Simulated scan of single mutants.
Amino acid sequence: MSIKFKEIISTKEEFEEFRSFIGQPSQRAANKVISFIDQHCRDFISKSPFLSLSTSNSEGQCDVSPRGDSPGFVTVLDDQHLFIPERPGNRRMDSAENIITNPNIGLLFFIPGLGETLRINGKAYICRDPELLAMNTVNGRVPLFGILVEVEECFAHCAKAFIRSELWNPDSWLTKENLPSVPQMLVAHSKIPNVTADQVAKDLQEGYKSRLY
């Protein structure tokens, strides 16, 4: 990239100087990372209906993908492993393909109304274990695969971002009329001839009703 902006920090030496300016983390922040899923993390995961899943390919190109279902949809198998069932999506398989070439993964668990989140980092594997898949059957539909995560780091993240953004405050939410139109966005981006935003909206709603599992 041709850098045309000022004060870009791009070397380790520059970062070390920047670190001295920012300061060091508190003892609590520095010590809060654990290497296993303890009872507090288990409780958090059991109450979480949503997570963001971060992967990258062998060239370091990154992707973040949402995963959501009923609270506790992620199964904690033991202190080092958890299992995320793969529900039907758009079949792009970005996360799965990344995992094949680069198993490093980052997870961020959310609980609605709670500002603090749970971060988990580790190694991921595409898993088709029949017993695990059967455990995650919903409406008679067995997932085709899941993501098995070998946990390396677990730690809580503070609520400052949620407080600043007022994400959980309904009074701060936009009205339906002021929300972005995703159907219009998809039409503009996909550039498929003779496809309208109304058609895309209809397809999306049909998928939400009949193809969740």
Results as ranks from 00 to 15, higher is better:
Ile3Lys: 11
Lys4Gly: 14
Glu7Pro: 00
Ile9Phe: 14
Glu14Pro: 00
Glu17Asn: 15
Phe18Met: 12
Ser20Thr: 08
Gly23Ile: 01
Gly23His: 15
Arg28Ala: 11
Ala30Asp: 08
Val33Ile: 13
Ile34Pro: 04
Ser35Val: 02
Asp38Tyr: 10
Cys41Trp: 05
Pro49Lys: 13
Phe50Ser: 04
Leu53Lys: 08
Ser54Phe: 12
Asn57Gly: 03
Gly60His: 13
Cys62Ser: 15
Phe73Lys: 08
Phe73Met: 14
Thr75Val: 08
Asp79Pro: 06
Asp79Cys: 01
Gln80Met: 04
His81Ser: 00
His81Ala: 01
Ile84Asn: 05
Arg91Tyr: 15
Met93Trp: 14
Asp94His: 15
Ala96Arg: 08
Ala96Leu: 14
Glu97Ile: 02
Ile99Pro: 01
Ile100Ala: 05
Asn102Thr: 06
Asn102Val: 03
Asn104His: 10
Gly106Glu: 06
Gly106Thr: 12
Leu107Thr: 08
Leu107Val: 09
Leu107Glu: 06
Phe110Pro: 06
Ile111Gly: 09
Leu114Met: 15
Gly115Tyr: 01
Glu116Met: 15
Glu116Phe: 14
Leu118Ile: 06
Ile120Gly: 09
Gly122Thr: 04
Lys123Glu: 03
Ile126Ser: 12
Cys127Ile: 01
Cys127Leu: 08
Arg128Val: 06
Asp129Tyr: 10
Pro130Leu: 03
Glu131Pro: 03
Leu132Val: 07
Leu132Arg: 13
Ala134Ser: 13
Ala134Lys: 12
Met135Tyr: 02
Asn136Gln: 09
Thr137Trp: 07
Asn139Arg: 12
Arg141Leu: 00
Pro143Ala: 12
Gly146Glu: 04
Ile147Leu: 13
Leu148Ile: 06
Glu150Lys: 14
Glu152His: 15
Cys158Asp: 03
Lys160Phe: 04
Ala161Pro: 12
Ala161Ser: 15
Arg164Tyr: 09
Arg164Thr: 02
Ser165Met: 07
Glu166Val: 00
Trp168Lys: 13
Leu174Ile: 01
Glu177Ser: 01
Asn178Met: 12
Leu179Asn: 13
Ser181His: 09
Val182Thr: 08
Val182Lys: 07
Gln184Trp: 11
Ala188Glu: 01
His189Thr: 09
Ser190Tyr: 12
Ile192Pro: 00
Asn194Lys: 15
Ala197Gln: 02
Gln199Asp: 07
Ala201Tyr: 14
Gln205Cys: 02
Gly207Cys: 06
Lys209Ile: 02
Arg211Asp: 02
Tyr213Leu: 08
Tyr213Ile: 00
